[in-house]
Write a protein that binds this DNA or RNA. Structure first.
Lengths: 211, 211, 211, 211
DNA sequence: TATGAATGAGGTTTCATTCAT
DNA sequence: GATGAATGAAACCTCATTCAT
């Protein structure tokens, strides 16, 4: 049948459409304030249909998060391995690449959402920590250690340094998520500007005359 | 009368007891998942009593936030004014003082809560931005500028630098708030260690041989 | 003591002040929508004081009704007995007197209130019927019968005629009570005009040429 | 399918079933004393179902009133226009027709209910005045004026006369509504008897010897 | 498979009434 | 007696979830 194709395509796309709708609404209004029916409506289906794909609102949330984070997991670990030049350059490159992926797409707001709703979803929190935070920290931590061993970096505390690399960007995203609307806090910096300034500062320090 | 004292002392303390109970529960379970009755119960009163003091659950939340933030507002601006030595030392001093105040007491978790629940409380978000974030940024930004003018600091972009000072600490608090329970993410660093490492890094930079 | 007098006077007046406040508020907002505390406040006392005088909101209502109706009960029966002239004149006179008493003072709105709230207060309904409605009907019915026996009136059905005398005035009061506010129904007739027109019509009929 | 019918028929009938249940309970116990859940139960559905059809208890009340009054609005105006004989006969006819419609069916108790609850529903009060009271008054008033112009009636004040036509019947209904139960006031007159007696009295007057 | 009518547990809020001071 | 803080039953309403069609 000619009509079967689009209908089938439609049906196959359902789960993704529902997850997209869920993401948009959870970001906009928060998990608790979003009703299942709204999600269904935004995905163009009826309330009952949502429950054919996800057995509860909680599971919908978790599926949405996993789906949107899964893409970015276990990606960029490889490029760090076979690299040769100065670690500082690689570090800058990786931060920029990370931001290009996370900051622009869905992953960013999903991270904000996870932090925001983590108390309701302990398993999800653990998943996020295990699959997103820890790998990222290990990746960056490994780079720092390489730089130190190579004599390129000073013998800084690795964990703190990693935190100092990650936190400003994550915080900026969460800030945008929490206060971005209501024109409450007009940003004068673009994220990339922040990133560049951050990397420059971290590498060279604030002091004019290094001791 | 001797018996009058506890009664009266009790009554006068009610609002604060309710705010304390609210803070504890909102932090523990989030705003939406906390029932008014639980707040009342934790404060040792019945459901209806809560409504004698705060006309709704929303207002209770707002009052709790304002109360806990009000203490720290408009405090530390003064000490920065009449200071003479190196700005770097003052900066380190202020960050440590800020952390001692905010990181230890209630203000820290309240900030995390505000970020977490900001979408439900637009007015509160604005209040927080106007009364907490902006003043803090101005204070630190002023210091950075003084340092640059004095030739002590390099001509770094001020806004990004301020962000780089604040974000790691705030993010650490939020991280603790979101993932701290469920022993999901055992910290190996103490906040003060992080702060020291952060300040050292920011001042001297990561590179071993400054260009 | 000099201060005892006014204080005592005050206390003695309490019950009446409470009943007055209750009347005003019940008329204004209805029984269910009036809170006990409002009644107390309007009477210038605290909530608890109200309960020293009336054991419940229901009892307060009943007391208020009885108090306001008691005055008019068993009054005017006497004047009808030793009267000599035309019954028609007496009838007109009594209706006018009744209106002057009931329509102007509190009794009118209390009647409206009783009708409005009667379903909640069965005993009160019975009290009202027994002490107000039935005596009034008997009084007027007796007059009509005297008029018929004297040949002054046609042999009309007594009960219906009594109803026709009473209903228009009661209805006008209730109408005012229900729709009087909200400038929903501007009256062009004064009650006395209505009463005169009514009596004239009832006595002489509508038809130009009596058959 | 044979089984589809009752389901569907059931669903379509829901609104009306709910309105019927609401009418019965509001009449029986008053608006404030009737709980939403009772209305639902009487209609044979659960609490939540009621709210699928009417967004609040207030709206349920208003819908019920409008539904029950809408039938009678804008009906009988026509029959008055093309009539030829004596106005008195037409008047009697119309009053009897009106009573047959209003007095027997739901409209009567609904009118009583509106008067009783009018203070809580200002918009509804206005609706009732505009759509029920005023048109009725205009209709009857027009007839009276026609009769006066035709010389059939004396030059009586129109507004008062209209009031005298309407009030006794409305008052009887309200009386029944307020005191009818509790066998508090056994009626010896049937409404039709009252109506006939009323019309006779109004037309011919009470006096035996018209002056 | 998709629908959306129906459900009812669960939450917020009100307010008549009590009682220690 | 007077007060008003405290109580908790009761009412309204929401919305996640189910299930007959």
């Amino acid at each position: 049948m000619a009509t079967a194709a689009p209908r089938q395509r439609r049906k196959d796309a359902r789960p993704q459409e529902l997850l997209d709708a869920a993401l948009a609404l959870f970001v906009e209004k928060g998990f608790a304030a979003t009703r299942s029916e709204e999600v269904a409506a935004r995905a163009g289906v009826a309330k009952g249909t949502l429950y054919r794909y996800y057995p509860s609102k909680d599971e919908l949330f978790k599926a949405m998060v996993r789906e949107n984070l899964a893409v970015h997991i276990a990606e960029s670990a490889a490029q760090a391995a076979q690299y040769d030049g100065p670690i500082a350059d690689l570090l800058v490159e990786m931060m920029r690449a990370w931001w290009a992926k996370v900051g622009q797409g869905n992953a960013g707001v999903v991270c904000s959402l996870v932090m925001t709703e983590a108390r309701h979803f302990p398993e999800l929190a653990r998943f996020y920590v295990d699959e997103v935070i820890t790998p990222s920290q290990n990746l960056l931590g490994g780079l720092i250690e390489r730089g130190i061993r190579a004599g390129e970096f000073r013998a800084v505390p690795v964990e703190a340094t990693v935190h100092l690399l990650i936190a400003p960007l994550l915080h900026m995203m969460l800030h945008e998520h929490s206060f971005g609307d209501h024109d409450v806090c007009p940003h004068t910096m673009s994220p990339m500007e922040l990133l560049d300034a951050q990397m420059s500062l971290l590498l060279h320090g604030l002091l004019a005359t290094p001791s």
